[in-house]
Amino acid sequence: MVSRQDNNTSPNELYLDVSLLQSLSDTAKWGKVLAVLGFILSGFILLFGLFMQQMLKSPGMEERAADVGLSGFTLVVYGFVALVYFFPSLYLYNFAASMQQGVQERSRQKVGKAIGRLRILFKFMVIMLLLFLVLFAVSLVMLATGVTSLEL
């Protein structure tokens, strides 16, 4: 990034040279590829959940699945995982599309909007990571205390 001060520019303005704009454009392209792959993976996770649901309903597995309580729960879990993976992919896609448009048009407002969308992605990821860490800690405590199931 190159900061430049001329007589008719504000010291708070930021100017990007061609190589940095190219790097932002390349980053946005790879972000879009990663987002599309994330959408595809979310779809595969959901399809796998449907497959597991059908497999657990097959003869011979039906009794075992009912004993463990997996018959209806499997689709819910896979659906939840697919949904959780879908949102970061969506936020990444929004960032990439906005960044590509901003760089192509050389629009400071659109690049700023893209950075804002990247910030939303990072916030989502931090929240999800903290939730998973809390769940992991709870499971470790349950494991350490020997609690295997909640009795209501």
Rank of each mutant, 00 (worst) to 15 (best):
42 S>D: 08
43 G>I: 07
43 G>E: 01
43 G>R: 07
45 I>H: 03
45 I>Y: 03
45 I>G: 00
45 I>S: 09
46 L>N: 01
47 L>W: 11
48 F>Q: 09
48 F>T: 15
50 L>W: 06
51 F>R: 01
52 M>I: 05
52 M>Y: 01
54 Q>R: 07
54 Q>L: 06
54 Q>S: 02
55 M>C: 00
56 L>M: 13
56 L>Y: 15
56 L>R: 08
57 K>V: 03
59 P>T: 08
61 M>V: 00
62 E>T: 10
64 R>D: 06
64 R>A: 06
64 R>S: 11
65 A>C: 05
66 A>K: 12
66 A>T: 08
67 D>H: 08
69 G>W: 11
70 L>R: 03
70 L>N: 01
71 S>A: 11
71 S>Q: 15
71 S>F: 13
73 F>M: 07
74 T>F: 05
76 V>W: 15
79 G>H: 04
79 G>D: 14
80 F>C: 04
80 F>Q: 03
82 A>I: 01
82 A>P: 06
83 L>V: 00
84 V>E: 13
84 V>A: 08
85 Y>S: 12
85 Y>F: 05
86 F>Q: 04
86 F>C: 00
87 F>W: 08
88 P>C: 05
88 P>N: 12
90 L>C: 07
91 Y>D: 11
91 Y>K: 08
92 L>D: 02
94 N>V: 04
94 N>W: 09
95 F>R: 01
96 A>Q: 10
97 A>Q: 07
97 A>Y: 10
98 S>R: 03
98 S>D: 13
99 M>N: 11
100 Q>I: 00
102 G>V: 01
102 G>N: 14
102 G>T: 10
104 Q>P: 07
105 E>A: 13
105 E>R: 05
105 E>F: 00
105 E>H: 03
105 E>K: 12
106 R>P: 12
107 S>R: 01
107 S>D: 15
109 Q>I: 05
109 Q>E: 15
109 Q>W: 06
109 Q>L: 00
